[in-house]
Design a binder for these strands. Structure first.
Length: 200
DNA sequence: TAATGGATGTTCT
DNA sequence: GAACATCCATTAT
């Protein structure tokens, strides 16, 4: 399948967020290839969004978000977890889409090991354990701060391709999860009836 | 099934 | 010193 071009990522953040649903995200880390279809995302925008990391300007932590659309922004949270974003809109803006959940495609054995899921009992309801949340997704795909600042168009370790066509009628939206500011914005988007989504 | 609280460290006030 | 785009085990209902 074809990979998106720069212009795909430089559109309005809401547009990119919706169009990322159904795309296949692949990582190649530690000699292991893993991939999954993006089924849930959240949009974070530079203007009118107090919950966005860049709401108060550029800092050491968020500087990667000011790259051109298509760069990867990973941050460390709660002392033990990572969250992965894809930068959107043109160079210098500071917008991104948070990746919240994937439906596994390739390298499931590797993902199970990274998530420390071993017993058969646990593998029976994988959709509630493997990658249904931003930090679970990072663990499953082996994403950490080393990937922050990579260009998803050229990186050898993380890439994106079109995979499944998702129409507007298949996309639902609601408030973003885990934030205290700008909770009125319905900027979480997910694929309707997809069981790999973190919260329906 | 819902609610609570601990783990853990970086960033910003 | 508080907040934090989380997760999971434990406890209460």
């Amino acid at each position: 399948m074809q990979s998106p071009h720069r212009k795909f990522f430089e559109q309005h953040t809401i547009t990119v967020a919706q169009r990322l649903l159904g795309c296949k995200l692949t990582t190649n880390i530690g000699g292991k290839s893993t991939s999954g279809m993006i089924v849930e995302v959240e949009a974070y925008r530079d203007q009118g969004d107090e919950a966005c990391h860049t709401a108060k300007g550029k800092t050491k932590r968020n500087e990667v978000m000011f790259n051109a659309g298509g760069f990867v922004y990973v941050y460390f949270i709660y002392g033990m977890y990572h969250c992965a974003n894809i930068v959107t809109e043109p160079l210098g803006r500071g917008c991104a889409v948070l990746l919240r959940a994937i439906e596994p495609i390739d390298g499931i054995e590797t993902m199970l090991k990274r998530r420390k899921i071993f017993s058969d009992a646990k593998t029976k309801s994988l959709h509630t354990k493997l990658a249904n949340g931003p930090s679970k997704l990072c663990l499953a795909l082996g994403i950490n701060n080393n990937l922050s600042g990579h260009d998803i168009l050229t990186s050898q370790q993380i890439s994106l391709s079109h995979f499944q066509k998702i129409s507007k009628s298949q996309i639902l939206s609601g408030p973003r999860i885990g934030i205290s500011k700008a909770t009125d914005l319905n900027w979480r988007f997910w694929i309707k009836n997809n069981k790999w989504v973190s919260k329906q």
